[in-house]
Design a protein around this nucleic acid. Structure first.
Length: 638
RNA sequence: GCCCAGGUAGCUCAGUGGUAGAGCACCUCCUUGGUAAGGAGGAGGUCGUGAGUUCAAUCCUCAUCCUGGGCUCCA
């Protein structure tokens, strides 16, 4: 560093804004190291500088990225010949990808790497930034034998920065913490394979995941939260609560057990209620179609990789591409065909068709996950056929509906993503342009915070996606609405306008919950298996205090069932405490206790799931009215 | 699909080159009970599947199926 060079450190120190916990600074919109010389007039710069404390979110990223550097340094010390690639901070930590000729890292090696990292950190080595010409950087990387970095270098613009720490050097944009002293708490968590630049045609690298925090305490809290999240994992709860299961004979295709099927049906009932109010009519369509339907729709060949094919013994075919039948991966072609069954008038539009048909999509074995990503599922699918002019209004109406629905399930953190035209698509650019415009305008008009995902749209149209997070903060797409000008064209759909001339309708594909399977998975994690009372598989368990009251308990349960309440009696010869315990483990919203007192007076002692609240002995009428009001499904308002 | 880690009773998990164990759940009996586990006994496994090595394989090797973590939040 030049004598007297102006840095964030000198400027902040001069104003006594530098503390022991300051790891970097924000200079305008730019993150800068404390020690990097700044350009410009010192006096004006100082006011634009904001010191970043270790506890700030931006500092956390810097700490993690610096920890990744230390890890890479340790790896190269321990395993010479290993090349480095990318090592960014992530939402929950960091990773670094290596090309190690000997292959992946074992658990024991992870421990050795951690130990080596500690040794490096203890030396309190400073992070030093150095700016090079591209030519000099090329020479440096060639010298180090870092071929991946060399490849990446060619994508970068002059000048190039590198960071040194403890004699180790890496091509890096920075910034970094001043020295390794600031890395106080880290843990290496996992090894995994990852393709170079994420492309499966490239060589596979060895990735090491880790996490880092400004203090040992915050790391400990993070690890505890991970443990808690595991307890909410829908796969674990699905098994424990007997909601669903998987058969070896149907991989990645869940079977719903009685308890899970009850929740599933209630979700469908809820949706049917919404549809009735919101002007949808339901249709039912086959699962197996002649391939011609999907040729017309354009699913073949765009979507063939994700489709199942079928044939009969009368079909003398050898190649799957000649299979006569297709298992539907989507409902839209069938709905387009239904629309085309007869001549349509503008007076019928918008025509909103809903379908709970079962879909099958072939998903590669590595991407399936519990019931949130499966091969057999059902969408709360619907297609709106309308005029161009009606499109914006329908989209706006749908956004209101989907927002209200998520509110019903107490989801608050919704991400809205507008996904635009992908490389592999059907239809002209003009048509895509219009469709993208329509979606974006609706979101903007509602003032909804959203992101744009370039190239992430469906092959037939752009979409708005509504994402929610699961217990491990993985983001899942649930609801969606997609504008489609292509299918109406391909199916030659028309309506007769007021002018008595044929016109082309547009088609909106939409789903509120998305896949019912996925939604249920996310919902299970959201509520930790304690479903809202209206969805609970059993809404009340009536526990008899002793055998002589078993019959009375069963009679009460039956009386409630005739009122539409899912009630069961626990007449096992367990003691009351054990019955309460098992009902609570199943997260049953109400528990009724029936003994001498209740049998005599005709009432029931009731307790609610929430805070184990005991409502005491209530007269039967009060029991019924309490249950009926607590068990009523919510009503999403449009 | 690819990399890594797994697959032992319904569930959660021990275990060993000489054909297997615990807790819970289940069944039977005793107990007739008042708000998160009463007691005793019993039954239950081709150790994922197939092959190989071995006198002998749940254990070692290979294949295969299934499950789990990950596969550009770009130096």
């Amino acid at each position: 560093m030049l004598e007297g060079a102006v840095t964030a450190r000198t400027l902040l120190a001069a104003e006594e804004r530098l503390t022991m916990g300051t790891v970097a600074a924000l200079y305008g919109n730019e993150l800068v190291d404390l020690h990097t010389p700044l350009d410009g007039a010192a006096s004006s710069m100082a006011t634009a500088l904001v010191p970043l404390d270790a506890e700030s979110p931006q500092a956390l990223e810097i700490i993690r990225h610096s920890t990744a550097h230390v890890m890479a340094s340790a790896v190269q010390r321990l395993f010479p010949g290993t090349q480095v690639t990318f090592g960014p901070a992530t939402e929950n930590g960091f990773y670094y990808d290596f090309d190690r000729p000997a292959g992946s890292f074992s658990e024991e090696e992870l421990a050795r790497i951690e130990a080596e990292m500690l040794r490096i950190i203890e030396t309190d080595a400073p992070f030093e930034r150095e700016v090079l010409s591209k030519e000099a950087a090329r020479a440096l990387l060639t010298d180090l034998g870092e071929h991946y970095k060399l490849e990446h270098l060619e994508r970068l613009e002059d000048p190039i920065s590198v960071y040194r720490v403890g004699g180790w050097v890496d091509l890096c944009r920075g910034p970094h913490v001043p020295s390794t002293r600031f890395l106080k708490a880290f843990k290496l968590t996992a090894v995994a394979g990852a393709y170079w630049r994420g492309d499966e045609r490239n060589p596979m690298l060895q990735r090491i995941y880790g996490t880092a925090f400004p203090s040992a305490k915050s790391l400990r809290i993070h690890l505890q939260q991970l443990e808690l999240a595991k307890a909410r994992d829908h796969r674990k709860l699905g098994r424990e609560l007997e909601l669903f299961a998987f058969l070896d004979s149907a991989p990645a295709s869940p079977v719903f057990l009685p308890r899970g099927a009850t929740v599933y049906s209630e979700l469908v009932n809820y949706l049917r209620g919404l549809y009735l109010r919101d002007g949808y009519t339901e249709v039912m369509t086959p699962e197996l179609f002649d391939r011609k339907l999907f040729e017309t729709s354009g699913h073949l060949p765009s979507y063939a990789d994700n489709m199942y094919f079928g044939m009969t013994r009368d079909d003398k075919v050898e190649n799957v591409d000649d299979a006569r039948l297709c298992l539907k991966p989507m409902n839209c072609p069938a709905h387009a065909a239904i629309y085309g069954l007869k001549r349509r008038s503008y007076r019928e539009l918008p025509l909103r068709l809903a379908d709970f048909g079962r879909l099958h999509r072939y998903e590669r074995s590595g991407v399936v996950h519990g019931i949130t990503r499966v091969r057999s599922f059902c969408q709360d699918d619907g297609h709106i056929f309308c005029t161009q002019e009606q499109g914006a209004g329908e989209i706006s109406r749908f956004i209101d509906l989907v927002t209200a629905v998520y509110r019903d399930f107490a989801f608050s953190e919704m991400r809205v993503i507008v996904a635009t035209r992908p490389d592999k698509r059907i239809g002209s650019d003009d048509v895509w342009e219009a469709a993208e415009r329509m979606l974006l305008d609706s979101v903007i008009a509602k003032g909804i915070a959203h992101e744009v995902a370039e190239g992430e749209g469906a092959f037939y149209g752009p979409k708005i996606e509504f994402h929610l997070k699961d217990a491990l903060s993985r983001s899942w797409q649930l609801g969606t609405i997609q504008a489609d000008f292509n299918l109406p064209e391909r199916f030659d759909l028309t309506y007769v306008g007021a002018d008595n001339l044929p016109h082309r309708p547009i088609m909106l594909h939409r789903a509120l919950l998305g896949s019912l399977e996925r939604f249920l998975g996310v919902l299970i994690e959201h509520c930790g298996g304690a479903f809202p009372a209206w969805l609970a598989p059993e809404q009340i368990v009536i526990a008899s205090v002793a055998a002589p009251f078993a019959e009375a308990a069963e009679a009460r349960a039956q009386a409630l069932r005739t009122l539409g309440i899912r009630a069961i009696a626990d007449s096992s010869d367990n003691k009351l405490g054990a019955k309460i315990r098992s009902a609570r483990l199943l997260r049953v919203p109400f528990i009724g206790v029936l003994g001498e007192q209740e049998a005599q007076g005709g009432g029931l002692s009731l307790r609610r799931r929430e805070e184990g609240k005991d409502l005491g002995l209530l007269p039967w009428d009060t029991v019924v009215s309490t249950l009926q009001s607590a068990l009523a499904p919510p009503s999403a308002t449009v």
